[in-house]
Amino acid sequence: MLMKRVIPCLDVHEGRVVKGVNFIDLRDAGDPVELAAAYDKEGADELVFLDITATHEDRPLMLEVARRTAEEVFIPYTVGGGMRTSADIRAMLSAGCDKISMNSAAVAAPGLITETSRIYGSQCIVVAIDARRVPGSSRWEVFVSGGRTNTGLDAVAWAEEAERLGAGEILLTSMDRDGTKDGFDIDLTRAITRAVNIPVIASGGAGELDDFAEVVIEADADAVLAASVFHFGQFSVRQVKEAMAAHGVPVRL
C-alpha cells in the first residue's frame, strides 16, 4: 500500500539551517546535512531544503549541501529556492538531489517546467504554489517572491496548468494558514487535489498532531510538510506518524 509521506522542511541561509532545532546529540545544529540525517533517523520520508539566500553568489554553498546530503542521507530530498534557469536546475540535480522545486521561476517562465521535465523526468520537477484566499470568495490567488507579489493567477487553474506543462508534484502552501498553527487549509488543498492527477504536498498551518491526518483524510493530500513544529521540537516526526496511523492513515513507521 502506498504510504502518505511526512516531510520536514529546512530553511537554509548561506549553507546553514536558520531556525533552531531541538535535536539532542547534534555536533552542529546548523549543519543541514547533520539535521537531515537526524530527520531520517526519526522516520522522515523525504526532506525539503529551501534555500532562502537565493542570491547568485551563494549558489555554490547550496550545491555543496546537496552534494553532501546525497553522500550521507539515504532518503529522497528536494531543493527549492532561487533556481531561475535550466542550468541552475541541471547543476542542482547533478549535485545529487532527487527533485527540485520551483516557485517564482515557474510563474515567470512556465516553459522551464516543460523543458526540465522533458530532460530529467517529471518526477523530479516540483512546482511550489503559495496561495492566498481572495477575501469573501472561494478562490485563491498565487503569490510569488516569498509571498510579496500577487500574480493574480487562480491557484486551481495554475496547478492544472503546471501539471499540463509537466510538473510531477505540487507543493501547496496556504499563506492564510502558514505560521498560524490553525491546521492545514482543507478547502484549498481539496480544491487542488480534485483538480490535478499528480501528488499534492500540503503545507502551512500545522499546529496539532491531528492536523496531519485531517488534511490527508479530508482533502486527499498525498504528503504533509511542516517546518516549525519539527524544528522547535513541538512534535517529532515519529509522533506525527503515530498520530496519523491512529486515524487509519497508512504511514511508514
Binding site: 502506498l2 509521506r5 523526468g121 518526477q123 499528480i198 501528488p199 498525498d222
Partner: peptide, 9 residues
C-alpha cells in the same frame, strides 16, 4: 497517479 512516487510496501 503516474508516476508512482513514494514509499510502498
Amino acid at each position: 497517479k503516474i508516476p508512482h512516487i513514494g514509499w510502498n510496501t
